[in-house]
């Protein structure tokens, strides 16, 4: 299918550009971009639940934090290595999403939002409550010795950037493959018309649970990678803020598009970065961006582009 070739070419081109950026950009921006790529993986996961399956969660911070702490705690307490710790984070994100989904997916719409919000809040408070084990609000620094993957030192700039890029590329390829697969079609079907999907023989609960678990795996992987690459694990990553951020990225870039989360993360990150240069009122921009987006461009940038002609965009 030529459409398929064009789509893969577009995404490969993005990865190639990001690879080239490493040699062009000054260190400061390269580090930013590494951060953005990891956050984009988080947002991609959020998008699989929200953008494709229609599950508006306000609790993804707990999946992100689950991945981060499942990676960080064994490293901190038992000196586990970076590779297994990363894997542990990924599994933890998915397991957490599965457990929450089993309960929360009995509700829908507004109730689902509040239930996920409440679970995430309970998760955050739990991290604080066991502050002696988790480091609580202050968090802890991930031991440099553990921040190695396949012999590379992730605390130095180039390997860190490449690791972030590798994770991003893998996540994007996975996302692209998933949404173009028959299961991806069923996810969208749940978003568009749940009752019809049920009467085509799909169990809404199982489809949504599967989507949420995949989404949680993405969030967990991003959380673990974030802790590993930037060397810090903290309770602040479990706050409601980190549930809102991926939603903001996805809304800005375009819900239900593969590249939207990255585009949204990139733009929002630099919007905050630039505005915080001359004002401390960056919270205001987050709030204003949310309100303006939901008012005037609920489909986001890529969603609007897709509507205006580029219908092949996945």
């Amino acid at each position: 299918m030529s459409g398929g070739a064009r789509i893969w070419a577009l995404h490969l081109a993005l990865v190639a550009m990001l690879f080239a950026a490493l040699f062009v950009l000054p260190t400061y921006h390269a580090t930013n971009l590494a951060r953005i790529m990891v956050l984009a993986v988080f947002a991609m996961g959020y998008n699989l639940a929200f953008g494709y399956t229609g599950l508006l969660s306000l609790g993804h911070a707990m999946f992100f934090a689950a991945g981060m702490f499942a990676m960080g705690l064994p490293v901190w307490h038992w000196g586990l290595g970076g590779g297994p710790a990363l894997l542990l984070g990924l599994v933890a994100g998915g397991a957490m999403a599965g457990a929450v989904g089993l309960l929360a997916l009995r509700t829908a719409g507004v109730s689902f939002m509040i239930v996920t919000l409440m679970f995430a809040q309970a998760g955050y408070l739990t991290i604080l409550y066991f502050g002696q084990v988790t480091g609580g609000d202050e968090g802890f620094v991930v031991d440099a010795a553990a921040r190695r993957l396949f012999g590379f030192d992730l605390s130095s700039d180039v390997p860190r950037y490449l690791a972030a890029l590798a994770l991003f590329a893998a996540a994007m390829a996975g996302c692209l493959w998933l949404v173009r697969s028959p299961f991806g079609r069923v996810m969208v079907a749940m978003r568009e018309n749940e009752e019809r999907s049920r009467m085509l023989g799909y169990d809404p609960f199982r489809v949504k649970l599967a989507a949420l678990v995949i989404s949680g795996v993405y969030a967990g992987a991003a959380g673990a990678a974030y802790g590993l690459l930037f060397g810090y694990v903290g309770g602040s990553f479990a706050t409601i803020q980190y549930s809102i951020l991926p939603m903001l990225y996805v809304l800005l870039g375009g819900a239900g598009t593969v590249l939207g989360p990255f585009l949204g993360a990139l733009l929002m990150f630099y919007l905050i970065d630039i505005t915080s240069g001359f004002t401390s009122a960056w919270l205001f921009f987050v709030g204003a961006a949310l309100v303006l987006l939901i008012l005037f461009a609920p489909k986001g940038i890529l969603g609007t582009i897709r509507e205006r002609g580029a219908r092949w965009l996945p």
Binding site: L56, L58, G109, V110, M113, I244, M247, L251, A281, L283, F284, V286, G287, A288, A289, L290, V291, I294, L295, P298
Partner: peptide
Amino acid sequence: VLKRLKYDPEATIVATIGLLYIFQQAAL
């Protein structure tokens, strides 16, 4: 804001989260 969203439940939650940040920042 809310009227323009036609009081769609999910959209208004997102919008009021935005308002929350705006009010907080204004107070700060």
